[in-house]
Design a protein around this nucleic acid. Structure first.
Lengths: 145, 145
DNA sequence: TTAATCTCTATTGAATTGATAGAGTTGATA
DNA sequence: TATCAACTCTATCAATTCAATAGAGATTAA
């Protein structure tokens, strides 16, 4: 399961994606629009910033904005920034591979093989789903209704 | 990520899969062979039993054995028995659907759509990977070496 | 009857999660 | 240049989960 924090992050990024590129949205407004506790959102935004997904403008009339066009930011990057690797085990991660503490033999591990397949499938889906695409799908859905 | 408990469970089930069908393996031996703390393994086996994946024989010369042929037990069932739904959010689960506490609109949720794709891909892979198949792959690998 | 086994519940310590608090820094603007 | 609204950072908190251990009880083959 994703953490609550990661789901908040996804929602907040979707809200930022709706804003005009480059124009900052302040944390307070973002918290309201994404329905996230403000002080908690601050921490989330700091993490997203550390991951290079957003940038901030300090001082009065400051706020946060996406660090890249909406078609360059995908769900996978957001989830990784908050919850870490997508894989179901450290040994199945490609972005953060680590031998499991109690792994007996990495090469012949039957479980690992399956977990790698899962992580690849997950990554393909989440890396293919950008903010731009998600926005577009939503607009199409609203139009159809 | 899977819990340590789930990874222990997968290992233990693989060991049980190697045993002759119907003949019980006692917890102590299983703990040694799967390299899992014995008392912790007991809890895991109880959960697997509650899920109907193994059955137990009590008393002297008792133990645990698979409740079905190795080709009828897949990784998905084992993971679900220990860690719960495969999905990344309650609202993306098919076996245990539940609306997210703070979900705004289930129908138009852009995030949910992606998470459902992930859960379907994950389920397809893990439901397709049975104990029998995993054993067979391992034997092939050992032969090749 | 006994000893070996599973069964069940409780407890523990550490880590994580979700959230709040507050002092500090920055910078546009009046 | 003073001010105030914004971001920044670290600490703290309660609740929960995780990983593991402990021990008393029930069951059954020998």
């Amino acid at each position: 399961m994703l953490s609550q924090k990661a789901r908040y992050a996804l929602r907040a990024m979707m809200v930022l994606a709706e804003a005009a590129p480059g124009t900052p949205t302040m944390t307070g407004e973002l918290a309201t629009r994404a329905v996230v506790p403000k002080k908690f959102l601050e921490q989330i935004l700091l993490a997203l910033k550390a991951a290079g997904l957003v940038f901030s403008t300090r001082g009065r009339s400051g706020g946060y904005a996406l660090a890249a066009p909406t078609d360059k930011i995908d769900f996978a990057a957001i989830v990784r920034a908050i919850d870490g690797p997508l894989a179901l085990a450290p040994c199945a991660s490609r972005t953060a591979y680590r031998r499991c503490d109690d792994c007996l033999d990495v090469e012949t591990c039957d479980i690992r093989r399956a977990l790698i397949e899962v992580r690849d499938a997950t990554a393909t889906i989440l890396e293919g789903r950008t903010l731009a695409e998600a926005l577009q799908l939503r607009r199409r859905k609203i139009k159809a209704a």
